[in-house]
Design a protein around this nucleic acid. Structure first.
Lengths: 140, 140
DNA sequence: TGTACTGTAACCATTACTATTACATTTAAT
DNA sequence: ATTAAATGTAATAGTAATGGTTACAGTACA
């Protein structure tokens, strides 16, 4: 899976800790060790899906609008990674019963699998992730 | 995810339909539209895990030894794709509470998630896949 | 002994992912 | 108004992951 999911979770976790002001893509990028342009691209997705607000210009940046208690990893997965667990399939060989149908059969199975994965991820909110991050930090 | 999983399922499904003789990597490769060397590589994994037998030399090839009713997609996933649903994580920023712990938190969550995925995939045997392939074929 | 196979390493090609640059646009402050 | 600080986004370049191909050693059978 791509790292967009991780970046989205990372960014939202940061924003949840700074609910009172805008954070810039430069600041988030430094925390996540990636290029600011990637942060802006990923966070654009989150804005399009109503999780955050963005503001251009001086003093602009990103801020959490939704409730960190209500945004779950399922929503973030759906936004950033839908279809990501589908196994790749080579070209179909239409001359072969197996070859011509395997792709569809596996696609169907893994679509269901992704729904189950979603149910699992739905138990974790951004607030939970923030807590887990802090717990690990204390443990050191 | 890589196509190794699909190739393994495809190969085993074919083998389950030809239980009485050895199939060659060339034949399987043609059905799956990939290079025979890839088939040999993937099927080596399956042999190492006891699902099939292989034989070199004239008249050699690959044959199912396990029972297609008992080999589930979970086993194949574990062999070919363990860890595949883990989201990638950029480098850690040790100066940042979030940056230094996000990777471990997500790794833990997705390890559990992969176990759940395994439980889901466990309901499908190779025989089931063969049936589904045929059902789709009939439906055309 | 020759032929038909697998086993595997090495290399090349292609695709996917990520970083970077560039620049238009927006906003606030002076 | 002008400048500076930000996002938005397209285009490009670099890097990593994936897959294809070649080569050849080893094995088994006729």
């Amino acid at each position: 899976m791509t790292s967009d999911f991780t970046l989205a979770v990372h960014s939202l976790t940061l924003l949840s800790l700074l609910p009172d002001r805008m954070s810039t893509s430069d600041a988030i990028a430094e925390s996540a060790c990636v290029h600011p342009v990637r942060i802006r691209r990923v966070l654009s997705l989150l804005r399009n899906n109503g999780l955050i607000q963005t503001k251009e210009g001086t003093g602009g940046g990103f801020i959490f609008t939704a409730d960190p208690k209500e945004v779950t990893l399922r929503a973030i997965f759906k936004i950033t990674s839908e279809g990501a667990i589908q196994p790749k399939c080579p070209n179909q060989n239409d001359q072969c019963v197996v070859g011509s149908n395997m792709k569809n059969v596996l696609f169907s199975i893994f679509s269901d699998a992704e729904n189950h994965l979603g149910q699992f991820l739905h138990q974790y909110t951004i607030e939970d992730v923030a807590s887990l991050v802090h717990m690990r930090h204390e443990a050191l």
